[in-house]
Structures are given as structure tokens and as C-alpha cells.
Amino acid sequence: MNEHKPQDIEADEALLHQLESWQAPSVTSESTARLILRLNAEFTSKMVTHRPQPNVLRRAFWLIWIQTRVIGQTLWIASALVLLLGAGVTLALREVSLGALPFVLIAPIVGMTGITFIYSAFSEPITELELAAPISPRLLALSRLTLVFGFNLVFSVLCSIGLALIDSQITLIPLIEAWLTPMALLSALSFFLSVFALDPLISIAISLTLWAILCLRHYLTDRLPFLTGLPNLLEVQWHGVIWLIVIALVGLALSWIGREEHWLRSAR
């Protein structure tokens, strides 16, 4: 996203020194007082409307919208392409009787990867926006999470609809159920790990390992009998527990963000 080197967009000490030599005249307190008097004269009841606070939906929409300014287009394009690729592979392997398995495997990984990079500690524009905006950093992080997760969710649903329409062997609702809960779990886990300042790659590695174990336990137990000791979290009866874990991970991460950003602001 950031193609400029720090030395290109920050003035070096010598240049700063030169720039500092150009001083603007200061304003007198009388001049400021005169201006305040004039503004007080302008201040009429007509001018001030007791606007209600923007409603919750409008504010939420705005919060999500401003996140699009700091999330690079690459993320959207890459996520969409990988999901399309997953759908394409699923269709190409129809003859192998895998059902929608390739797409079910890929969709949670796309969700998890996107979330990892939106909260990378190295994402300078994001940190800067948080410091510049008088909005709770938790709200900003939550809106960013909503935006990226929402995008992946909508795109995955569209792909699922496409798959169900093209392949009569695939039924829509079970397909969505198969990838939605793991996608939420892996996204929440990678969000949690990223917030705790782990390297994005380590965060991805941990989430991928978990996903691999869950898949092996669910799909290949007959070939790997030693995994039967583990709970099969991809079974529908575990979905409720998984969603509770998702809420707990996001809650913990958001609570940590508040503490971390409070420190950043006070150190500013």
C-alpha cells in the first residue's frame, strides 16, 4: 500500500532546519479577541441547530466507510481472486466427487489472511488514522474487522450461490454452514493473534495449523485414527461453542486494543 520510503516523505534534519527559518507572524491577543467578538455577533439561534447525534446505523456506516481509505485495493482483489479460484477448482473437480470441499477449505483461509493483514503492527496508515481520529480505537478496529469479514462473507456467499446453481449436487445452506463457522473462527483467531503484536506470518501459520488439524480430524479420521481423540469441531453440534469462542477472541482482542492505543496516545 505504501510505496514511499520514509526518507522520501519526511524532511531530513537539514531541510527541516531550513523550513523552520520561514516563520509566520504571530497574531495579537487583541486581534483574536476582535475575531471572537465578531463571531459572537454572528452567533444566532438560526445558525445553530440542535442536531441530534447521527443515528447509530449512519455512524456505523461512516466508521466502516472510512476504513476503505486505509485498506489497500490489493486485499480486496486478492481475496476475490482466491475465492473465485476456489469456486473454479470446486467446479473443475466435480468428477472426483469431492462435492464443494475445495471451496470449503479455501474460504476460511481467505477470511483469516485478510484479517491478519488489516491489523498488522506494521500498517502505518492504519495506526496513523487511529491516532488522528477522535474515535475509540476499539470502534475503528471493530469497523475494520466488520468491513473485511463482511466483504469475504458476501463474496463467499455469492460464490456458494454460483456453485449451487451450476452444480445440482451442491446444496446452498449446508455449503454455507460448512465454511461460515470455520471462517469466523479462523478470522477471530488471526485478529486476536495480530492484535497481540505477533508477526502476521506467525499468526497465519498458527491459524493454518489449527485449520489443518480441524480438517484432518473431520475429513480423514479413517486414515488418521490417532486423531479420533480430538473433538470434531467441524460437526454442526460444535458450532455453538465455536461461535462463543469467536466472540471471546474478538472481545479479548478489542479490550487489548483499547489499552494499547491508550498507551500510544499518551506517548504521542
Binding site: M1, E3, H4, I9, P125
Partner: peptide
Amino acid sequence: PIGTVKSRLSIGL
């Protein structure tokens, strides 16, 4: 966008 801000700063500097 922030990217444009950086471009302008980079070229201006």
C-alpha cells in the same frame, strides 16, 4: 487518500 498525500509530500520535498 493517504497515498496521494505521500506522493505530494515526496515530490514536493
